[in-house]
Design a protein around this nucleic acid. Structure first.
Length: 930
RNA sequence: GCCGUCUUAGCUCAGUGGUAGAGCACUCGCUUCACACGCGAUAGGUCACAAGUUCAAAUCUUGUAGACGGCACCA
């Protein structure tokens, strides 16, 4: 069989996925071992609006590595895929489409039609990411694909909602919430981000005290053209003629239209006499009181604060304490409403702001405007400035669930985060300060809240409309028009995807769906740190509450893949790297193993060269296999041939030892989610140990058609491919199937009846008993020797065409080793004769070197450049001398010798002695040249 | 304001108390019959800075500087 000269990822990528999927290899049912332990992962469901980005590629790689690794180990493995309905995102897409295609607004077609269009949109475009996951090679069980708005998952949502409501954990209330005027919906605190605005302004407004002003309340009406002529006093009050003012500062002047008080600190001497007095609120014709409240910091600003209970969370609380009216002056699109007065009604908030300021100025009531750096809350998705607004919404009390989660962490350390620092602490302290969760959203796409109202506004929460009507005694009802926060349904993901619907009460014990019983708790959750609060914590809480189970034991938090500029990838920065482009350029496998080579949790700047490295690695694997296949007609990988037979050469014993060391290390690394460690071990084992040394050492036998040698090489490749498979599924399958002798016989015992695939081959465990310390030491001595000879040739500029003999002096044991490997040493050192003795007996015109086990010399009559050789020796002496003096300094420190562990001290002493001998040898070599 | 992370070779990154590592780039040499996406040989680092703990610090502690993240506040 002859392979192409270079690996072409495309062919392999097209060859296998469909077969894997069609053969049911991704399904847990492929496992025929009734006693198999389960291993399960649920995918963080990507938005149906999404397409694959590098963060997905990273997370999917890790999940697939774990899944494939465990599957090969014989676990009954399930990686469950799915998508999230992504309320706001889909709604926005459909609104855009409607506008573009039909110039219509949602209201024009009505809710029912709109939702129909949204489903249609989802059917049409929602598969993008699932198709891309196939390209990635993700070994998910597509037959268990779930969507958060599937009937069964929606049933779970309704039942959870009703249960929480019946318990009193869900309530409806009037609160200050984050309002996005563009999306026209409320947002949870977590969906609000901050943006710093450097050119912000702080406006100082004068509020006249009632009964003191020269001007009548009427003159403070909007558009009054009368200005004032005032003198200002420090401390925020001003007097002009008969008029006294209280000056307040605000960044949002338009909200003054909704002010219902001015608050001062109770202990503020400057204002004590004003408490209880009234203010004539300009532009409104309203009178509002001056009140005292501890909330006010006398030191800050003017010490007097305008109170707008309907437009600020702190003011809202002050308002509650003082029973102030809550005057809402804005519409849901952030234009001013009727309450703002006829002059302002209908104006956008920012236009209204300018107008308020202008009018204050005209009235002489604008004291000053300061530049003020301000951070503004913005909508996470559309970046619109979020307006704090008084609104009636649904909330979940989090106290009980928070305690469930905190107990899990404290008593069982669940979930165990990787990396543990800093996530465990951040997660815990977030929980400790958890506030109620706003769960209603003013959207049409999503799970409509199962609450109905009668004409009088009485609410009936029920699982179905019929049940609600029943509760209402047959009255006509109207369902709440809001839907639930997308994260409410994804919070149930760990159990709703396994068939839990909450039909039988809480379904805690009875009639569990089989998948729930089989796969919950899941083993690990892999996700990014941006949704630890939004999703991870809620899934832990809701799963514990509704199933009594742990959602997942471990939680791997991946780092962020940054753009080449070191900033997070984003459309606006245009620094994104498309995984699909990388797949096309370097191959899926190279991209995957590169992503896996990033330290767990670490951020990384994207670097094409990293992927290129592993593209080259893929090619190396391809070519090593190619070489093997070129010489192995009729042979087969035979594990027995790698066993510890006496006839094995040093190189054979050594590669077996290295293989087992590697397998043990890889398994250990994967168990602790140290993917980069596993990758590094595999990379260096395959490239350095196997290709650079083992293949080169056995080449002559292989090319000579030595059956035993070839099948040993085949076996090492076969085992390596298995270990590489979780990282590089396509390449390894492509090659594995081509190896002679591969069949389902090599499968893990759980899959013997399945068609042959490396996916189901037994993952090498590695055996400590197969680690051969002597072989490692001896091989190291041989390698060391060869490297020294190569160094002489390179440094002396001796062409490989020139063969020379190599003299070696060593102790009896090492003499045996070198003798036994004479042929290999000659071949790799490109020498023609090896002379091994107790002492070196060479002419003066020789290049010399020392290793830890030998002295060596290469006679170079007529070829030697004495200056260069002296220089070479001096360099070596300098190096060894430096190391020795460092050791001797340590050894001459009495404290070190007394306090350091004996082993350590002995080790250093030995090394020092060794170095002394080597230096003496080199110095005498050098002396003979002088 | 509070909490936290990072700073290691030209670049991108590993490394957690005991002689500083990788890939790429650089230098030198190789059309060696698997691979130039390759082979061989070099060179390159007072591990941000300062103080401390220790026989011993890139690694632990504290501080400083710079980069970044989360939370809170923002009249």
């Amino acid at each position: 069989m002859e392979l192409a000269k270079a690996y072409d990822p495309k062919t392999a990528e097209e060859n296998h996925y469909k077969r894997w999927e069609d053969s049911g290899f991704f399904k847990p049912e492929i496992n025929q071992n009734p006693d198999a332990v389960k291993y399960s992962i649920v995918i963080p469901p990507p938005n149906v609006t999404g397409s694959l980005h590098m963060g997905h590629a990273l997370q999917h790689t890790i999940m697939d590595v774990l899944t494939r690794w465990k599957r090969m180990q014989g676990y009954r493995t399930l990686w469950l895929p799915g998508t999230d309905h992504a309320g706001i995102s889909v709604q926005r897409k459909v609104v855009e489409q409607l506008k573009k295609d039909e110039h219509k607004k949602p209201a024009d077609i009505g809710r029912e039609e709109f939702v129909k269009r949204a489903w249609k949109w989802k059917e049409q475009y929602g598969d993008t990411i699932t198709e891309q996951m196939r390209r990635e090679g993700a070994s998910v069980d597509w037959t268990r694909h779930r969507f958060t708005m599937d009937e069964s998952l929606s049933l779970a949502v309704r039942n959870v909602f009703c249960t929480l409501y019946e318990e009193g954990s869900i309530y409806r209330g009037l609160r200050i919430v984050n309002w996005c005027p563009k999306d026209k919906t409320v947002l949870s605190d977590l969906e609000v981000k901050e943006e710093t605005k450097k050119d912000g302004k702080l406006y100082y407004l004068r509020y006249p005290l009632s009964g003191t002003q020269a001007t009548s309340p009427a003159s403070l009406q909007p558009q009054a053209d009368e200005g004032g002529d005032f003198t200002i006093q420090a401390g925020g009050t001003g007097v002009a003629g008969e008029t006294t003012f209280v000056t307040v500062a605000t960044t949002r002047p338009e909200t003054m239209l909704g002010d219902t008080a001015v608050a001062v600190s109770p202990s503020d001497e400057r204002y004590k006499h004003l408490i209880g007095k009234m203010i004539d609120l300009p532009l409104t014709g309203r009178q509002i009181p001056i009140i005292a409240d501890e909330y006010v910091d006398a030191e800050f600003g003017t010490g007097a604060v305008k109170i707008t209970p309907a437009h600020d969370p702190n003011d809202y609380l002050v308002g509650q304490r003082h029973h102030l009216p809550q005057l809402l002056v804005m519409n849901d699109d952030a234009t001013m409403n009727r309450e703002a007065g006829p002059v302002f009604e209908g104006l956008d908030r920012f236009v209204a702001r300018a107008k308020v300021v202008e009018q204050f100025e005209e009235l002489g009531l604008l004291e000053k405007v300061d530049d003020y750096e301000i951070t503004l809350p913005v909508c996470e998705r559309c970046k619109t400035i979020v307006e704090p607004i008084l609104s009636e919404q649904w909330f979940v009390k989090m106290d009980e669930m928070r305690d469930l989660a905190l107990d899990l962490m404290r008593s069982e350390g669940v979930p165990h985060f990787s990396p543990q620092v800093p996530h465990e602490k951040v997660y815990t302290s977030w929980l400790e300060n958890l506030k109620d969760w706003t769960i209603s959203r003013q959207l049409w796409w999503g799970h409509q809240i199962p609450a109905w109202y009668d004409e009088d506004g009485n609410v009936f929460v029920a699982r179905t409309e019929t049940e609600a009507v029943e509760k209402a005694g047959g009255k006509a009802l109207k369902q709440d028009s809001d839907v639930l926060d997308t994260w409410f349904s994804s919070g149930l993901w760990a159990f709703s995807t396994f068939g839990w619907t909450g039909e039988n009460g809480k379904q805690l014990t009875a009639n569990l769906p089989p998948d729930l019983e089989a796969f919950l708790p899941t083993d690990v959750l892999v996700t990014g740190r941006d949704i630890i609060f939004l999703w991870v914590s809620r899934m832990i809480m809701l799963t514990k509450k509704f199933t009594g189970q742990i959602a997942f034991n471990d939680c791997v938090i991946t780092g962020t893949v940054l753009g080449k500029d070191g900033k997070p990838m984003s459309k606006s920065r245009n620094n994104g790297v498309d995984p699909i482009e990388m797949f096309d350029k370097f191959g899926v496998d190279a991209t995957r193993i590169y992503l896996a080579s990033i330290a767990t949790g670490a951020d990384i700047k994207w670097n094409d060269i990293g992927v290129e490295t592993y593209r080259n690695f893929a090619n190396k694997i391809w070519n090593a296999t190619r070489f093997c296949l070129m010489n192995s007609t009729g042979n087969a990988a035979q594990p027995a041939n790698v066993g510890g037979a006496d006839s094995l050469s040093l190189a054979d014993r050594w590669i077996v030892s290295r293989l087992n060391t590697t397998a043990i290390a890889v398994n250990r690394a994967l168990e602790t989610y140290q993917f980069h460690e596993a990758v590094s071990r595999l990379y260096h084992f395959f490239w350095d140990d196997f290709c650079d040394w083992y293949i080169e050492l056995s080449k002559d036998k292989i090319t000579a058609g030595d059956v035993a040698a070839t099948s040993r090489m085949l076996t090492v490749i076969e085992q390596s491919l298995r270990m590489l498979h979780p990282f590089m599924p396509y390449l390894t399958e492509e090659l594995w199937l081509k190896l002679p002798g591969t069949s389902s016989v090599l499968h893990n015992a759980a899959y013997t009846s399945a068609d042959a695939t490396i996916m189901l081959a037994d993952f090498p465990k590695g055996e400590a008993a197969m680690i051969d310390e002597a072989a490692e030491t001896e091989m190291e001595a041989v390698i060391d020797l060869i490297k020294k000879v190569r160094n002489i040739r390179a440094e002396m500029n001796i062409s490989t065409a020139i063969k020379f003999s190599v003299h070696i002096a060593a102790d009896a044991t090492m003499q045996t080793v070198f003798k036994a490997n004479e042929f290999q040493i000659l071949k790799l050192a490109k020498a023609e004769k090896l002379i091994i003795a107790d002492e070196l007996d060479v002419p003066r015109a020789s290049a010399k070197a020392v290793t830890n086990n030998a002295r060596l010399a290469v006679p170079l009559e007529g070829l030697i450049d004495f200056d260069k050789e002296r220089e070479r020796l001096q360099t070596q002496i300098a190096k060894l001398t430096e190391e020795k003096s460092r050791l001797d300094a340590q050894l001459s420190n009495a404290n070190f010798v007394e306090r350091a562990p004996v082993d350590k001290v002995d080790e250093l002493r030995e090394r020092s002695t060794e170095l002394r001998e080597q230096i003496i040898t080199l110095e005498s070599n050098l002396a003979s040249l002088l």
